[in-house]
């Protein structure tokens, strides 16, 4: 039984991702979208924590459309998986529930 966490705020200005990271556990996933994709940058405040979660088997996703719109495509951390809207929909179906951090 696992939860998909979505985060739509930049971790440069907002602590939503920090709270998400506290609660997230191994079978869960994190999707960064809207301004949340700024947290996918290698330079983002929570970059190390996100990478550590990824190494524990938590998938970290970022919505490609939001990434491209903000000209971040070549600046994001390598472990983060870029996904389309269709894949976003599949994720919400495949996880048991969704928690939005905003």
């Amino acid at each position: 039984m696992s939860t998909l966490h979505t985060v739509n705020k930049s971790s440069f200005t907002n602590r939503a991702l920090e709270s998400c990271i506290l609660i997230c556990r191994s079978s869960d996933g994190i999707l960064l979208l809207e301004d949340g994709v700024f947290s996918a940058l290698k330079s983002a405040p929570n970059a190390t924590a996100l990478e550590a979660l990824n190494q524990q088997g938590i998938h970290i996703y970022a919505l490609l459309n939001d990434v491209k719109a903000r000209a971040l495509e070549y600046k994001i951390a390598a472990h983060i998986q870029l996904i389309s809207y269709d894949e976003f929909v599949s994720l919400t179906v495949n996880f048991n529930r969704v928690q939005s951090w905003y």
Binding site: M1, S2, R25, D28, N96, R97, V98, Q99
Partner: peptide, 17 residues
Amino acid sequence: NSAQISNLLNHQDHILS
């Protein structure tokens, strides 16, 4: 604590955020 919340989340049918 945070670990207990993870557990709480994972026993729900739905979450209202």
